[in-house]
Amino acid sequence: MSTSRGNAMRTRPQKHQNKSAYKNDLHDKTNKTKFLNNLDVTGVCKRCKDIIDWKIKYKKYKPLTAPRKCVGCEEKAIKYAYHILCTKCATKRNVCAKCNTAVEANELEIEKEPNVDLQLMLKGIPERKRRTIMRAINKTHGGDSNLTPEVISQVEEMLKNMDNLNLGDNDDELDDFDDSDSDGSDKSGNYEQD
């Protein structure tokens, strides 16, 4: 028996061996699972990142339902599960937000919140117009999508002038046609009477 006293080495392989890797979204296609699979773990050291990634991979991660209290600033500012420090305190102290150990600034991966703010600004507009604005920003700033004051003012100006923004639509060509088709029917499907 492999668990008998004094038997430290097993001579046989394990009885049930996995034929394929575990997939946490194989039978679970909910939005929560999609969100967790796309979650980018930042602000923690490499060891803590591996731990949280393992929890996500094997469906052991339990996200927060409400913000938690930060150990550093005593405010309810922690947005991610298993963290004890908010992002602001962790970057100020150069420590891991989960285990509170000292980490060099280049090892600590900090999330880029300006992109989130830009996405929130553009959330309420249609996809086509949103992509047009993102293309214009990337063109003027060379692919750098950091949220600077000039970018914010540029986006706000584009949002104000959204109706005048030329998206490549050829509405003028459609004015040449009237409401009836060539077969004599109008848009409602009724045929004209002679």
Rank of each mutant, 00 (worst) to 15 (best):
I52Y: 01
T33H: 05
T33C: 09
K60Y: 11
C48L: 03
D53T: 02
K60R: 12
K34H: 14
R47P: 05
R47Q: 15
K55N: 10
I51H: 06
G43M: 10
D53S: 09
Y58Q: 04
K60V: 13
I52M: 07
K60F: 11
G43A: 09
K59T: 11
I56C: 01
F35D: 11
K49Q: 15
D50E: 15
C48Y: 07
D40C: 10
K60P: 01
F35V: 00
K32T: 13
G43V: 14
L64N: 06
L36F: 01
L39F: 11
C48K: 03
D53K: 01
I56L: 08
K49A: 08
I56Q: 06
R47F: 15
L36H: 02
V44P: 02
P63E: 11
I52A: 03
W54N: 05
F35W: 14
D53H: 02
L39S: 04
W54M: 02
W54P: 00
F35A: 12
N37A: 08
C45Y: 05
K59R: 08
K62W: 09
T42G: 11
P63R: 00
L36S: 01
I52E: 01
K57D: 13
I56W: 03
N38F: 01
I52W: 01
F35Y: 14
W54R: 09
Y58C: 07
D53Y: 03
Y61P: 02
